[in-house]
Simulated assay, not measured.
Amino acid sequence: MATTDTLPVQRLFAGLAICYTSPDAETGIVLDELLTVAEEINDDFRSTAKKLMDSFSSIALEDLRVDHARLFVGPFSLLAHPFGSVYLEEGNLLMGESTVAVQELYREAGLDMSGDFRNPPDHIMAELEFYAYLLNRERDAQDKNDSDSTRRFNAIRRRFFADHLGQWGEEFASKVISNATTPFYTELGKLTKMTLEKESNLEG
């Protein structure tokens, strides 16, 4: 992947991260961007992104927010836990060793959690956004012919995907697909799963 144009995939991961926030009127702008990016990848991505955008336009925001809360927020049991530790830790613990490990990777890459972000470091939004960040840093280093930085960010990205996002993201996406009550979140789960499967095939 280091020798290919990673910009479309970077934009795809960044857009997906935003889609896991509670939906609002600005979500449509993100979906337009996702569709543009998906068209650059292949027809399957384009078709799923188009269904995602169309479903957003046809469902009331309040219904989307209710489904978002059911899946990811609560107050009752979550139908698609958005935290990596739930999938990676014995006993489905929150804030376990894997959470600490992922935060250490953020710091290794020169980042720390924003004070405005009120979720654990292994929330799906944070991990998708971090992967997009790593792709950006790796590509930027390549453009500058900085081989040391290219290797560094490539190594962090591969380790992060192998040990964290790639380990639990597809199972999470499957739970979104099977538990969503709106077509929007069904299609979001599908697009997320397709994206992670594509990266998994490239990393493997």
Score class of each variant (00 low, 15 high):
Leu31Trp: 00
Leu64Ser: 03
Ser55Gly: 07
Gly91Cys: 04
Asp5Lys: 13
Phe56Ser: 01
Ile156Asn: 01
Pro23Gly: 08
Glu90Ala: 07
Tyr185Val: 06
Leu64Pro: 00
Gly91Asn: 04
Met125Gly: 11
Lys175Arg: 15
Ser22Gly: 10
Phe56Gly: 00
Gly169Arg: 06
Leu135Phe: 08
His123Gly: 10
Asp43Cys: 04
Leu35Thr: 11
Lys51Thr: 10
Lys190Thr: 06
Glu62Thr: 11
Phe161Gly: 09
Met95Gln: 07
Gln103Asn: 14
Phe160Asn: 04
Thr21Ser: 13
Ile59Thr: 13
Phe161Ala: 05
Ile156Met: 07
Asp140Pro: 00
Val66Tyr: 02
Val73Gln: 04
Arg46Ala: 11
Trp168His: 07
Ile177Ala: 02
Phe45Asp: 01
Ala126Leu: 07
Gln142Glu: 08
Ile59Arg: 05
Leu135Trp: 06
Tyr133His: 09
Ser174Leu: 12
Leu196Tyr: 02
Ser85Pro: 08
Ser55Thr: 05
Val86Asp: 00
Thr6Val: 15
Leu93Ile: 10
Asp67Cys: 00
Asn136Trp: 06
Leu196Asp: 00
Leu111Met: 15
Glu90Trp: 05
Thr4Asn: 13
Gly74Phe: 02
Asn92Thr: 06
Gly28Ile: 10
Glu127Lys: 09
Ser147Cys: 05
Leu196Gly: 06
Ser85Leu: 01
Ala2Leu: 13
Ala126Thr: 10
Glu97Phe: 04
Ala109Thr: 10
Phe117Trp: 11
Pro183Thr: 09
Thr36Gly: 06
Ile177Leu: 04
Leu165Ile: 11
Glu97Met: 07
Leu79Gln: 06
Asp112Thr: 14
Glu129Gln: 12
Arg157Ser: 09
Val73Thr: 07
Thr181Gly: 02
Val176Cys: 05
Phe160Asp: 05
Asp32Gly: 15
Glu26Val: 05
Asp122Phe: 02
Gln167Met: 12
Glu127Tyr: 02
Val66Phe: 00
Leu105Met: 14
Glu129Tyr: 06
Val30Asp: 04
Tyr131Met: 15
Leu105Arg: 00
Arg151Thr: 13
Asp116Gly: 11
Met113Tyr: 07
Glu170Tyr: 09
Thr36His: 05
Gln167Trp: 01
Asp140Ala: 13
Ala17Tyr: 03
Thr48Arg: 07
Gly189Leu: 04
Ser57Asp: 03
Asn92Ile: 04
Phe45His: 03
Phe161Ser: 10
Asn42Ser: 10
Ala180Lys: 02
Arg157Gln: 07
Val9Pro: 02
Asp140Met: 11
Pro121Cys: 08
Met1Phe: 12
Thr195Glu: 02
Thr36Arg: 03
Gly189Asp: 07
Leu61Ile: 08
Leu134Thr: 02
Asn42Gln: 04
Glu138Ile: 08
Leu134Tyr: 06
Thr150Phe: 06
Ala69Ile: 00
Glu33Ser: 12
Lys144Gln: 12
Gly166Thr: 10
Gly204Pro: 05
Ala162Lys: 14
Ala173Ser: 12
Ala173Thr: 10
Ser58Val: 05
Gly169His: 04
Lys175Met: 13
Met53Phe: 08
Thr6Arg: 14
Tyr20His: 14
Ser47Asp: 12
Asp54Cys: 08
Leu52Asp: 02
Ser47Ala: 12
Glu138Asp: 01
Thr99Ser: 09
Glu62Trp: 02
Glu108Leu: 15
Pro120Arg: 08
Ala2Trp: 11
Asp67Pro: 00
Glu62Lys: 15
Val66Gln: 03
Gly28Phe: 06
Arg139Met: 11
Asn92Trp: 06
Ser47Pro: 01
